[in-house]
Simulated scan of single mutants.
Amino acid sequence: MPTLEDIRKAAQELEGRIHRTPVLTSSALDERFGAELVLKAELFQKTGSFKVRGLLTKLLRLSPEERTRGVITVSAGNAAGALAWAARNAGVPATVVMAKTAVPAKVDAARGYGATVELVEGDLMAQYEQIRDGRQLTGVHPFDDEDVITGHGSLGLELLADRPDLDTVLVPVGGGGLISGVATAVKLLKPEIRVIGIEPEQADVVSRSLAAGSPQKLPSARSIADGLAAPVCGTRNLPLIQQYVDEVVRVSEAALLEATRLVMSRTKLALEPAAAAPFAAMLEGSVQAAGVTAAVVSGGNLDVSKLLL
């Protein structure tokens, strides 16, 4: 399992390469939810999401032979753009496998950063593996990787450095990469802080994995929060979630949409629905904000058309 020293090393490697994102406040949201809220604004991160933290960490640690072969990942969108940006920054050829139903803006972003995008149907992981092996590319898993996890842990270090008075941290959950890194950093520094994960009801693979005691796979995972619609829970992520996360709750599609609109209206932050998951949980009452509560606003790569229906 990653240590605090591992996470601190990753943070040092990232320093000067990515943004140290701000922690913001909103009196309107404080009044709405009855607590002091702080928003870790990862939508201002390079490529518009937290993903560059872990993926750049991974690329910086590749061997010369792995870099020469080029890298490949599979993604709903944010990891695709993050890997494409990180690979261009590191001078490494990149390929990303995405569903044909992926948000067009996220496909365009990956291509804009210089990646080769393969749009596929059916089992994304199976086709990712086929392309990876057929072209002899270096696979970079978007969340089930120790380097990726430690890179994401840098967010937790920043959050506590800026707000050491936190009582609770709310983190959106997809396959488990972000929350496993953040929770590890937070709990190793301050074990008394509660860490709560939030995932969509229609893509609840982490909740199912916790209930089963082993990583599970969903037959399908579709949500307006496409960045959280991971079909599998990472084998490296689950033990960290079991050890360091106090609770994982589910939220409805309606709450995700309402929360996105609410936060955009009150803060003017153009967050994507995945990043609104903490606020959706507070709206539905599955999470009661108390004391100083941090919400990780994980990204801002939204499909505006879905908000205007």
Rank of each mutant, 00 (worst) to 15 (best):
I7L: 09
E15Q: 14
H19W: 11
H19G: 09
P22K: 00
V23T: 13
L29T: 09
L29I: 08
L29H: 10
D30T: 01
R32G: 01
G34A: 07
G34R: 06
A35P: 11
A35I: 05
E36Q: 13
L37F: 12
L37H: 04
V38W: 01
E42P: 02
L43P: 00
F44C: 00
K46Q: 15
T47S: 14
G48I: 02
F50Y: 14
R53N: 13
L56A: 06
L60G: 05
L62G: 11
S63D: 03
E65V: 00
E66N: 07
V71I: 07
T73A: 15
V74K: 00
V74L: 06
S75H: 10
A80T: 05
L83C: 08
A84H: 13
W85S: 01
A87P: 11
R88N: 11
N89A: 13
P93C: 01
T95C: 03
V97M: 03
V97A: 05
M98P: 10
A99C: 00
A99R: 02
A102M: 03
A105Y: 05
D108M: 10
G112W: 12
A115L: 10
M125L: 15
Q130D: 14
Q130R: 15
D133T: 13
G134T: 09
D145I: 00
D147T: 01
G151V: 05
H152V: 01
G156Q: 03
L160R: 00
A161T: 03
L166Y: 07
D167M: 02
L170H: 01
P172G: 04
G174V: 01
G174N: 05
G175D: 04
G175N: 07
G177E: 01
G177N: 03
I179C: 09
G181Y: 02
V182H: 02
V182S: 02
A183H: 04
K187R: 11
L188F: 09
R194W: 06
I196D: 02
I198D: 01
Q202E: 14
A203K: 04
V205E: 06
V206A: 12
R208F: 11
L210C: 04
A212V: 03
P215S: 14
K217I: 14
A221K: 03
A225K: 09
D226I: 07
D226Q: 08
A229M: 05
C233E: 05
R236I: 07
R236S: 14
Q242G: 02
V245Y: 05
V245M: 05
R250I: 02
V251I: 13
S252H: 09
E253S: 03
A254G: 04
A255E: 13
L262F: 10
V263I: 15
M264T: 13
L269N: 06
A270V: 14
A276T: 10
M282D: 12
L283E: 06
G285A: 08
V287H: 06
A294T: 08
S298P: 05
G299Y: 01
G299L: 04
V304I: 14
K306G: 00
L307K: 00
L307H: 02
L308E: 10
